[in-house]
Simulated assay, not measured.
Amino acid sequence: MKKENHTLVNEFVFQGFSSLHEYKLMLFFVFLILYLLTLVGNVIIVTIISIDHHLHTPMYFFLSMLSTSETVYTLVIVPQMLSSLIGLSQPISLAGCATQMFFFITLAINNCFLLTAMGYDRYVAICNPLRYMVIMNKRVCAQLVLGAFSIGLLVAIIQIFSVFRLPFCDRQVAHYFCDILPVIKLSCVDTTLHDIINFIISSLVIVVPMALVFFSYILIISTILKIASAEGRKKAFATCASHLTVVIIHYGCASIAYLKPKSENTRDQDQLISVTYTVFTPLLNPLVYTLRNKEVKGALHRAIVKKLLA
């Protein structure tokens, strides 16, 4: 079915949290604090990993890449959301919307596959420890990071080309940023084919890396259970705990957001889910990897002591 209004538009306006008008100021300060914590936390992780030679290992190289990606990811989305909450949001052009969507898709998929690379790193470290540094050499690590980014880049190009070939008749985006589904809904034409393509792509970029990670952990757990000493098993589990925590929450949020039936949630529920993976999930890395990881906490302690004694 085509929409009745066929006046094509060349810019969009975000409706944002219009249904929560009375809570906008409170939401602004809550999201601002979380955003600043995310930026500071991820910058600290990247800085500590770069300056502490104890953390110059494949595991922390991937973590620094993930933190960098998450930092840029939030920069693409959260400032726009914050400005809309205090009434400073301006209309966004089609080119601006396409740019925001491009970076969002690229970095979101990049994060998914970086977590897969981290899962593979833990698999090699525990299941093949004697050859760990040979297998996970600098070239392989760089290739895995480049591969994750390339997949995100390729999917983003395909999605942007597909979505922005559509004619748009409505300028009111029922969201706080240019996500794929809310933008597609503004089209004048039937978008069933685009919805199917989007679901297939979302399934591949979420389910495939998630399956690879959990397959890695099946092998990891089976190896850990064969370790004779309780202390050895505990240490092996500890090296995976932080990563597994982030993986479960990250893929869980992504699955709920993009693999659920279209009509299952209301607009407010959709936005709540979106807030989870655009505001809360990026904060996971600094929280989980600083509060649960002894090596990162040790590096932070050494850096603070060194600064105080300087």
Rank of each mutant, 00 (worst) to 15 (best):
Y120F: 15
E11Q: 14
A125W: 14
L130K: 12
F102H: 06
M136G: 12
F161A: 14
L115Q: 13
C141N: 13
V72H: 07
V13A: 10
S274V: 00
C97K: 03
E231P: 00
I220L: 05
K260D: 01
L181P: 04
N137P: 13
I218Y: 12
T278S: 12
N137Q: 12
L94A: 08
I197V: 14
S18Q: 11
C253R: 00
S18P: 00
N5M: 04
L88M: 12
V275E: 00
S150C: 12
L204A: 15
L272D: 06
A156C: 13
S50T: 02
L63M: 11
I157E: 04
N198L: 02
V205C: 02
L283F: 14
N42A: 00
M59P: 03
I51G: 03
Q269N: 05
Y217M: 04
Q100F: 10
S216E: 03
D179V: 05
A98Q: 11
Q80G: 12
P282N: 08
R139N: 13
V213L: 05
P182W: 08
R122M: 11
C178S: 15
Y258W: 10
Y176I: 10
T223R: 14
I184A: 10
M118C: 12
Q80T: 11
T38G: 11
P167I: 12
T266N: 04
V72I: 15
D52A: 07
D268Y: 01
I135M: 06
G252A: 06
D179I: 01
Y176S: 13
L115E: 10
